[in-house]
Design a protein around this nucleic acid. Sequence first.
DNA 1: CCGATTCAAGCTATGCGGCT
DNA 2: AGCCGCATAGCTTGAATCGG
Length: 340
Amino acid sequence: MKKDLTNSVVERRNILNNNIAMPELYKAIGYKGLKFESKFRFTKNQLEYFYEIDSRTIERLLVAHEDEFSKSGYEVLTGERLRDFKKLIQEEDSNLYNNINTVPSLGVFTFKALLNVGMLLTGSERAKQVRSQILDIIIDVLNHKAGGHTKFINQREEAYIPAALDEFIFRQKFTDAIDHFIEKNDFKYAQLTDKVYKSIFKEDANEYKKILKLKANESIRSTFYTEILRVVSDYENAFAKELERESKKKERKLTLSEAHHLFNDFAVRAEDMMEASIEDARSKMASRDLVFRDALHEKLENYITEISLNDFNNFLGEQSMTLEKRLEQNKDVFKRLKNR
DNA sequence: CCGATTCAAGCTATGCGGCT
DNA sequence: AGCCGCATAGCTTGAATCGG
């Protein structure tokens, strides 16, 4: 079954966690809520009216997706808070006030919860419109924030530059080790690099390029997220040491097939040692690429999870900026590094 | 007259069944 | 399937009623 908003929790969370797009969505939907405790709120009645559905339908959704709705901000007001809410309504919307002034408890939705309802309704025509509106705006915001293309969106977060610098150094150690400790062979670099990629994210360089629609001459590594870079660096660094040890033990260069065997042994140990960071890398790559780059890593499908609020901020929010800008801002740091 | 108790309203939560 | 209508229990609350 194809995943869409009505049947996938992760897809829904990935939209509701996108705080960057939320103000745009609120503007576009154009259904004004009542600002209570700094969030826009809607009563169940208002949702019925908005989506043209029965209250019973909303009840059923609330029951079936209890956790999801409490995350997206649905709550039942009683006591003190309900009194405050009523007072607010009395000032803002006397019609609504007359409907609810005597109720002892009242379920209220935040804007996110309102969208959440729209994502789950399969029958309502209005909900269908809302869903397509949501998707359009999410894509718009993404394109706008990413500057029209998402290929290098990985480079927009602050942690990227230090990771990329480290990676550069470790990569050199790795290729040096291949150079020094393995007999001359035209394919040795590519083959071993592919093995590293496959151990970490199950795809070789070609598969990865195809999934991200990279051109032949475009650098794979410059598209890696910070966490992927770190794991790849660690992995290559550790294997470089392994090559050196084995070559010194044998007191000669290794053949490429010896190197492959060595790698296979190493990979089993590395898998255990780096399990947590490898799993983390897989999950981040699969989830972020799906949301930010519209790229599906089929072999990592089980690793797809929801994108955190932090990620949306880091890649799309205020702190995010193009690599060029960040380099410009850090000019002094790089000068110092260079002069070292 | 006033606090306590009872009552009515109207929500939530849930089940059942019928419709498409 | 998914949606909706009806029925019912349980709750909170303000209004009405009661008793001293």
